[in-house]
């Protein structure tokens, strides 16, 4: 049995848990807890250690989706969760510019762990205050070759699309590496 994993990261309340719920075949094993800090009481629950979802590919292969906790005080979990990942997704709440700086920080930290492919998901595009993916790309200083994908995490099809875009990015990278290896021979 082979297990591979993709990590879903991003600031507090970006929609990471929602994203994993939309496609996981098991109830997301979430370590949600009630929020006690009044500043963060914009919703009832937050992820403390991680979210955990699963998609069985075939008898011998499963894909795990790990969601990181959004709050900085749990960032000691990030590096542990990112070990051996195929790629990662940075979720951003497109309606809350006050979280963009944090999103940039998270992006940089994850990039520093390993040269792993990633995409940015511009979440909550169903809300009228959402910044467009193009504006988010500039605001977050996303590299031109990295995809910024519109997303509504409550919509399974859109979540699938983000996952697929990440997998296509990984595939492209592998093809490039293969071409590079051939050139060397």
């Amino acid at each position: 049995m082979q297990a591979v994993k993709i990590v879903i990261t991003g600031p507090f309340n970006a929609g990471k848990t929602q994203f994993i719920r939309a496609v996981s075949e098991i109830d997301v094993v979430s370590t949600e807890s009630k929020i006690t800090d009044p500043a963060e009481r914009i919703k009832e629950e937050t992820t403390v250690a991680m979210d955990f979802g699963r998609i069985t590919i075939e008898d011998d292969l499963v894909l795990y989706l790990f969601g990181t906790p959004g709050q900085r005080r749990f960032d000691f979990m990030w590096e542990i969760l990112s070990e051996g990942m195929l790629g990662f997704i940075v979720m951003v709440d497109s309606t809350r510019p006050e979280t963009f700086r944090e999103a940039r920080y998270i992006l940089q930290v994850f990039r520093s762990y390993a040269p792993t492919p990633y995409v940015v998901a511009a979440n909550k595009q169903d809300l009228s205050e959402a910044w467009s993916p193009e504006d988010l790309r500039i605001a977050l200083k996303v590299d031109p070759e990295v995809k910024v994908i519109p997303c509504v995490a409550t919509d399974k099809e859109q979540v699938k699309n983000v996952l697929l875009e990440l997998l296509y990015t990984i595939l492209e990278r592998l093809e490039l590496e293969e071409a590079g290896a051939e050139m060397e021979h």
Partner: peptide, 23 residues
């Protein structure tokens, strides 16, 4: 990293293709 040179790319590519088809 895990994602890198140790494993032959051919296997990994087919693995990613399987993930894509399933999703």
């Amino acid at each position: 990293g895990e994602f890198g040179a140790e494993k032959p790319p051919a296997i990994k590519r087919s693995l990613i293709e399987r993930l894509i088809n399933r999703i």
